[in-house]
């Protein structure tokens, strides 16, 4: 009896490897952040009165909408193996441009289109320097962050400009308390998820981030694919700027400058790796919601916004550390 059991144990190869793979190691990174999001929501619902009301949920989603739009672009760039710090400069630039054009009597759609066009130009500049000349994306987008943010300041003369009420349509409610920009944001989220998961463009964005050499050998036009990620990122950022201006009926050179970090944080919280090739839209959604929920709950609890900044940073660091440890556990298993 004991003999047979012993033999069986000896016959089983590497008996340590299978059971040591913990439950946590099996979960995708975004799922862990998702669990964390649920915990945070439960905590706030019990401690902050009025947190889990329809009104407040709408507030959270409305506030998160701009970050979500910018994060979608950031996600594409991060998956392709780069990152885009210029988001926080393109947003105020687009917002100020939108304000100036609509004030001069441009129709809202025309002003929006002009802003997206400016975004596309910024994206093409990134493509030229980063994808074609292979200048470091950190330095390049830091430079364009400074340039675009600076132009926004110059154009607004350092003041807060107003936006005509007619151009505030994106902030107007479409159904119930749901504003237009949230509807558009949701459509963009669904569209980008589909693009990344099912289109050849999406597949190749993952490819050039995961193994650019293999992509090149396989005949993938790295410049076209990498370029489209940067162009889309800047276009999404300028759309986010327009949404912000349209929502607040105001524009300034500083507005949305913190979104660079928020969008990067959200994307990384959602499982994207800064080394490229990894990340997903559902993950980014969870990341944006987590940051949004934390900010909102702390506001309800009357915690000053400086503390929110600290907490957001700590959460990001914790999530990134955890996913790193998890990754290591997976490799061992």
């Amino acid at each position: 009896m004991t003999n047979a059991q012993e033999q069986k144990t000896i016959g089983t190869p590497a008996p340590t490897s299978a059971p040591t793979r913990s439950f946590l190691a099996r979960l995708p990174a975004a799922a862990i952040v998702g669990i964390f999001l649920v915990i945070v929501i439960v905590l706030f619902s019990t401690s902050a009165s009025g947190f889990l009301t329809l009104n407040n949920v709408t507030t959270i989603i409305s506030a998160a909408s701009v970050i979500m739009i910018a994060a979608l672009g950031q996600l594409l760039v991060v998956i392709s193996g780069g990152f885009d710090l210029s988001v926080g400069g393109v947003i105020p630039l687009a917002a100020v441009l939108f304000s100036v054009l609509t004030t001069r009597g441009w129709p809202t759609a025309g002003a929006l289109f002009a802003c997206l066009l400016v975004g596309a130009v910024v994206g093409l500049i990134h493509t030229f320097f980063i994808v074609y000349l292979k200048v470091n994306p950190l330095i390049t987008t830091l430079a364009t962050l400074s340039v675009t943010g600076g132009i926004a300041f110059i154009a607004s003369n350092g003041q807060t400009l107003s936006v005509p009420a007619a151009a505030g349509i994106l902030g107007d409610q479409v159904v119930g308390t749901l504003p237009w920009h949230v509807l558009l944001m949701v459509l963009l989220v669904v569209l980008m998820h589909f693009v990344l998961q099912h289109s050849i463009l999406g597949r190749r964005i993952y490819m050039i981030g995961g193994n650019p050499e293999a992509a090149r050998i396989a005949g993938v036009r790295v410049i076209v694919i990498g370029g489209s990620a940067y162009v889309l990122s800047a276009v999404f950022a300028s759309f986010a700027g327009v949404v912000l201006a349209s929502q607040l009926l105001a524009a300034s050179g500083t507005m949305g400058s913190q979104i660079t970090l928020q969008s990067l944080a959200a994307v990384v919280l959602g499982g994207a790796a800064l080394t490229g090739g990894r990340g997903s839209v559902p993950g980014a959604v969870i990341g944006v919601l987590l940051l949004g929920v934390i900010a909102n709950g702390m506001t309800i609890l009357l915690i000053p916004s400086f503390y929110q900044q600290v907490v957001s940073g700590v959460v990001l660091l914790a999530a990134v550390t955890f996913s790193r440890l998890q990754e290591r556990a997976k490799r061992v298993a």
């Binding site: 597949r203 490819m207 050499e213 050998i217 396989a218 990894r278």
Partner: peptide
């Protein structure tokens, strides 16, 4: 060519790697 450094995309599955750059659509 099977390159020494494999030229596989490490975050893709085997099935996905089979069609790198030659996706069916």
């Amino acid at each position: 060519t099977v390159y020494q450094d494999l030229a596989l995309v490490s975050s893709f599955t085997v099935a996905e790697n089979f069609f790198v750059g030659r996706e069916r659509s």
